[in-house]
Design a protein around this nucleic acid. Structure first.
Length: 469
RNA sequence: GGCGACGUAGCCAAGUGGUAAGGCAGGGGUCUGCAAAACCCCGAUCGCCGGUUCAAAUCCGGCCGUCGCCUCCA
């Protein structure tokens, strides 16, 4: 079985084969940095992080590039409102975003290009397009001439004529065609601008990604990704520019993730119905968010609600239960053998699911089955290499999804200080139990429970942990 | 109006021709002094109607509903 990926361009699931065997180049459109990132952004980052991790697991050397849009109308407006420098404002939110990515256990990209640092490449590309007749100047602006691009619209499935009828696009009478889009915008007072062969100004929205792709990954990339809200016009226009410029196919596989839905609506800045990454991480772990996302399919919308988050948290606790230490001494025998088989089946099932266009829900199902096998084996007293291998496999396969399975670090400094006291109470309760003083023993347990400490009695003694809530 | 996606048990969700994975919640049980955890058992004919087929959740047509894009958007 080989990896198959759904390609938005062909609307089909295709077998994945990179241009250069063993190597994969990936470009993912990053955020426009002008406000706090929300968990919809996190979802996109997490999904492509997992695509990357799985490709790496499959032995590919992945070069991963994701950008920051730091020159943009919204940034400028926001900066003016706050009387700040636009680039400084953008840098602030870009730094925040990088911090979020670390908190979310997203692997670092090879490069994080920013528009403001790629002007040379951008203007060079615009110049090239103009020379070949793909672009024209208009009062200091430069526009892309969609009519020159014979197959414009093939990613989003729109024809030029159709695309324009019934839209709310404000027609700019100066443009040759209403679908023409800006490559370069002339400088205006109060806006940052850069010198260029077309006069001072700044780039349009779409050209940046084309230029950065070209600069950092070459003329053709294997995988180009982003949210499905970018298909039109952003990615459509990227294709138009890039392919007109290089004369080559721009990206082999176009991958688009579905949107996170809050109360049945897409979570977005403009709708204002968002939960920021910081807000989420204050209450929940990154593992929980990943589990929530991977319960569904990356191309479909994900339902975010108090209930689905709670469900993800509990599912996570269940996955963690598979990592509890062995408690017997049967390193061989029927039970150990069963576990060995279950471990092999889990890995095979996991790979089959992930190979099928990253069917993470199916992959997770195999993980839950492995957990049950481990827990059953533990109860049967299994220990030793097979037990260790099963847990190691669980860690490894969860790791491809970026799920750490670490106990939540709810234990703040004060909690750490409380540990010896809790240990003492648990020990005293143990004595009470030995003395069959059930009422007092239960009083201790209930009291601790009320303080967020859960006790579990087992044949080997009493374990306790802080409630992850 | 145009383009596209989706509708599977209380909730989330996989499955795209051979009588439905997994998780959460719920019920019953084993274990336990009790509890918790773990483990075992229990639940859906797949929005509606019609068609193709020996056989459809899975293909085709119609209808209803939800969502996304067409304007900045992960």
């Amino acid at each position: 079985m080989a990896l198959r990926i759904y390609n938005t361009l062909t609307r089909q699931t295709e077998e994945f084969a990179p241009i250069e065997p063993g190597k994969v180049s990936m470009y993912v459109c990053g955020p426009t940095v002008y406000a706090d990132a929300h968990i919809g952004h996190a979802m996109a980052a997490i999904i492509f992080d997992t695509v990357r991790r799985y490709l790496t697991y499959q032995g590919y050397r992945v070069r991963f590039v994701t950008n920051f849009t730091d020159v943009d109308d919204k940034i400028i407006r926001r900066a003016n409102e706050q009387k700040r420098d636009p680039i400084e404002l953008a840098n602030h939110y870009a730094d925040e975003y990088l911090r979020h990515l670390r908190d979310l256990n997203v692997l670092e990209a090879d490069v994080y290009p920013r528009v403001s640092e790629e002007m040379g490449w951008i203007t060079q590309m615009i110049g090239g397009l103009e020379e070949e007749g793909y672009a024209y100047r208009l009062d200091g602006d430069v526009y892309f001439r969609v009519k020159r691009d014979a197959d414009y619209g093939r990613l989003s499935g729109r024809r030029l004529e159709e695309a324009m009828s019934g839209t709310r696009v404000e027609e700019d009478a100066r443009k040759e065609h209403p679908g023409d889009f800006a490559l370069w915008k002339s400088a205006k007072p109060g806006e940052p601008s850069w010198e260029s062969p077309f006069g001072p100004g700044r780039p349009g929205w779409h050209i940046e990604c084309s230029a950065m792709c070209l600069h950092h990954l070459g003329e053709v990339v294997d995988i180009h990704g982003g949210g499905n809200d970018l298909i039109f016009p952003h990615h459509e226009n990227e294709i138009a520019q890039s392919e007109s410029y290089t004369g080559k196919e721009f990206a082999r596989y176009w991958m688009h993730n579905g949107m996170l839905q809050l109360a049945g609506e897409k979570m977005s800045k403009s709708l204002g119905n968002l939960i920021t990454i910081d807000q989420f991480l204050k209450e929940h772990s990154a593992d929980a968010l990943r589990l929530l996302i991977f319960t569904g399919h990356y191309r479909k919308p994900v339902v975010y609600s108090a209930e689905t988050v709670e469900s993800a948290e509990r599912s996570l606790a269940r996955l963690r239960s598979g990592l509890r230490p062995a408690q017997g001494n049967a390193s061989t025998g029927e039970a150990a053998d069963k576990l060995r088989v279950a471990t092999e089946e889990a890995r095979a099932g996991y790979i089959a699911a992930m190979d099928d266009d990253f069917n993470t829900a199916g992959a997770l199902a195999t993980l839950f089955e492995l957990v049950r096998a481990i827990n059953t084996a533990r109860t049967a007293g299994v220990t030793g290499p097979f037990y260790d291998a099963a847990q190691q496999t669980l860690r490894e396969l969860a790791g491809i999804l970026g799920i750490t399975l670490e106990e939540p670090a709810a234990a703040a400094a004060s909690d750490v200080a409380a540990r010896p006291f809790i240990d003492l109470l648990v020990a005293v309760r143990g004595d009470l139990r030995t003395a069959r003083q059930w009422a007092l023993a239960d009083k201790v347990r209930d009291g601790l429970k009320g303080l967020g400490v859960t006790l579990e009695d087992s044949p080997d003694g009493t374990n306790w942990r802080f409630e992850s809530e």
